[in-house]
Design a protein around this nucleic acid. Structure first.
Length: 105
DNA sequence: CGTATGACGAGCC
DNA sequence: AGGCTCGCCATAC
């Protein structure tokens, strides 16, 4: 596979348990590139359909939903997380210290 | 092969 | 404290 990095990202995201959220930096760091957070986000942006990847559980280090917040995608992400039990702040901020996933293998 | 982009992160003003 | 800029890595063109 050419985009091994992508698959790796999907793999990590797939490991995120319900009611938990992970940050791009964490995933990137787990892949061995703590600086490739951008690439991680890009992988999700290019996330092909057909993957059972809970991309909605991936947010930025601030606990905020990234991407175009004006689109339906961000709205759905928030809705999905809320359904899983993730509480959102009034500004759409998630408590990483409470829902943050530690990537435990 | 070189340039430009991208759902980020951290640092600096 | 808040906002802005630069830097990083990987993929696409």
């Amino acid at each position: 596979m050419a985009a091994n990095f992508f698959e790796d990202v999907y793999r990590i995201v797939s490991m995120i348990p319900p009611g938990r959220v992970a940050t791009y930096g964490q995933i990137a760091a787990y892949l061995g590139n703590p600086r490739a957070a951008r690439t991680v986000g890009w992988a999700l942006s290019s996330l092909p359909a057909g993957r059972d990847v809970p991309w909605h559980r991936v947010i930025n280090s601030q606990g905020l939903i990234s991407g175009p917040c004006n689109t339906r995608r961000a709205n759905e992400q928030k809705a999905l997380l809320e359904e899983e039990g993730v509480a959102f702040d009034e500004v759409g901020c998630v408590d990483l210290g409470r829902y943050g996933w530690a990537i435990t293998l």
